[in-house]
Write a protein that binds this DNA or RNA. Sequence first.
DNA 1: AATGAATGAGGGTTCATTCAT
DNA 2: GATGAATGAACCCTCATTCAT
Lengths: 230, 230, 230, 230
Amino acid sequence: MSLTKFIGAKPDEGHAKRERRKENRPAELLDAALDLFVEKGFAATRAEEVAARAGVSKGTLFLYFPSKEELFKAVVRENISGRFKEWEQEFHAFEGTTIEMVRYCMRVWWERIGATRASGITKLIVSEARNFPDIAAFYQQEVIRPGTELVRGILQRGVDRGEFRPLDMEYAVFGIIAPMIFLIMMKHSLGVCMPQDYALDPERYLASQLELLLCGLQLRPGEGPGGTAP
Amino acid sequence: MSLTKFIGAKPDEGHAKRERRKENRPAELLDAALDLFVEKGFAATRAEEVAARAGVSKGTLFLYFPSKEELFKAVVRENISGRFKEWEQEFHAFEGTTIEMVRYCMRVWWERIGATRASGITKLIVSEARNFPDIAAFYQQEVIRPGTELVRGILQRGVDRGEFRPLDMEYAVFGIIAPMIFLIMMKHSLGVCMPQDYALDPERYLASQLELLLCGLQLRPGEGPGGTAP
Amino acid sequence: MSLTKFIGAKPDEGHAKRERRKENRPAELLDAALDLFVEKGFAATRAEEVAARAGVSKGTLFLYFPSKEELFKAVVRENISGRFKEWEQEFHAFEGTTIEMVRYCMRVWWERIGATRASGITKLIVSEARNFPDIAAFYQQEVIRPGTELVRGILQRGVDRGEFRPLDMEYAVFGIIAPMIFLIMMKHSLGVCMPQDYALDPERYLASQLELLLCGLQLRPGEGPGGTAP
Amino acid sequence: MSLTKFIGAKPDEGHAKRERRKENRPAELLDAALDLFVEKGFAATRAEEVAARAGVSKGTLFLYFPSKEELFKAVVRENISGRFKEWEQEFHAFEGTTIEMVRYCMRVWWERIGATRASGITKLIVSEARNFPDIAAFYQQEVIRPGTELVRGILQRGVDRGEFRPLDMEYAVFGIIAPMIFLIMMKHSLGVCMPQDYALDPERYLASQLELLLCGLQLRPGEGPGGTAP
DNA sequence: AATGAATGAGGGTTCATTCAT
DNA sequence: GATGAATGAACCCTCATTCAT
């Protein structure tokens, strides 16, 4: 799978003038808005374009969202997964080695977040944080913090079980998080403009980073648990 | 000359108080524009505000830059150095171990780029790439490519000298680059909105990432050069 | 039948609670529209709000009135009575002094028109005349003209019977009409915003104006019928 | 002088594209806005139309007034005379009879307010009071109150000097004010739509109302000062 | 060169009106 | 008949850009 953009408006299937399917208008609008906000940023995205991509008129957008800014906030709220508890349980029940766990963690993240349109939210928030400080704070609280806690728990398990060497727990988590965020940012910004042969292959990228990371984490035979830690 | 700027931005000269220097109008405008583009993005930055921050009138801005878009491109061009050849020579002359080289490289990057306003360029381009594909392509060509080549050269040196284990050269470079980009993005977006006690301490962050990375790179005694490489 | 409505509005029937009476939709809509048009003016009144106050949906409004403008005209038409002939007969049959007649006339106007929601029509037309010239002309023809004729008839009776001094008949009528219109305008505009202790007490206001007027109209003993007339 | 409307856009005298006379732009805009607000009301007046009538473009309007609402408030503020102190002195120094004073007062009012475009403000405020309660309160404070005080002073003088009979001072003032307001309302609303031969002649109207009023105010020989007062 | 008043296309938002259900 | 989702013209306001001074 390559990093080219996969955005495309769904084709008009001969829509009659007034279609009348309120049920999931908001979802369709949020969907269209996510794409466009990720692609162009908040300011450069026109409300009318969002509406058009959702297959409705400009006025309809404002039937569901009182303003462009509220639309933006709704897009973020809607796409921020609060699935951390679920994942925490999943990891609690995990029975293999912690190394396997880290591999599993990254693969799962890629499948459920990184490879999906949900990853656009991260790009969006990073790009717009300064213009929407409350959104940024919300994201920090709801995603960054629980996310790092989750990762920290995994690393701690590795250390506790003697699989990993002692670590600066507070910051070691970024050894896992940074490559993921970097991948997202590449995918949604520079990656889109790269010539084909320079595009990142996400699978290979993740594999390489994982290898590097795991080598860095592991306790080697002959090293005491006080090894190279800071 | 040192290893500065291999991530692609030019350091500022420490924010000297803006004097009324007629001969330097374009530089002052670019300076002001960099700040504002980084802070608010291209679309949300108003030309008048740039002019005001540079201490000139709106009209003057357009005297030097034919349009806001050209101003943006000039900001990017101005802050992207093409001095990679120079650095490559310096790298060739480096005499310590490759591990020292990596440490040196990251410290110097932080001092000259990461910690300065110049780092904003990276944030800017990542955020706006989709709206300025040609800028993104230019950046890819002028910065990303030579930058990764430079880093790759360092890693290759480590492998060649038997200091590092065999690596997937194409992607291992991101083990160095990703943590730096991540730090920049945090610093310029989410970091601004974080509560004090959750803010990243860059020195400690870089130290921890470096430790992890170097452990991951090094060849251990008893491991043959064919070790854990893919 | 009494002297009601010579200023041109129909009294309401005391605001009976709006029941869900299907057969009466138009009346309820006109009722709601009157309130809102008086309160906010034509342009600032939203069709949906009228419908909501009448307890129906937006679409229903347009089932009964083809446009907001037609609704407005209907509100005016509905509230303008053309029963001046009837009243003229009553006036012919009146047997007291003309002074009593004037007092009676004003009291009755206040009770049936001035004090009720019907007075809003006058405020409405005065405020919107320039935007609805045909409505204004209609009102002039149907209300102002017959109304002033009616009043003129009363004054003429006073003069003919030697109760009043000679008057500039054409304009003296405004001695009666102006204070009434003024009261309505105060009641429906500035009066609403006045602090309690500056609010007009309508009864006392009318009494004082009546006193002044009657003194001004009456022929004094010792004055010949050619007195102070112009 | 008749009550027909005298509004007309000043003819284009071949204006070059950018005229550049900041000095009195605000005044010209307020001027145009007054006309249009009086004619059509606040809501129905388009900002662009105001600008066009002032001979500038839409954007220029917002260079001087941050919003249509602020323009409205500025129109009111600008046209509300704070000349009451001046007038009070003028009346203090008046040496004739109070009857002459009342005549003078009305004539002066007509010349300086009633006959001028300033009278439109009254129409405007009465029409829009409900939509701009703070403007209405301001008008009440700055105009209505001092205006009635001024008139009350005149009436009190008449009573004190034995020229007028005892009066309900609080409300007698409306004997003077109501006819003036009525005239303004007619002039700016219904009057505009009246057929020529029904138009009010303001001079004659005022003369007739004055006559009526003065007869009503005066103390007659043989009447004690306790006469017909309430 | 420098200014800042002026422009006008563009975008967010409202709301009268329509029409499928 | 009644509904209310959908429409799109219209309006307020912004701001990049121009140009007379």
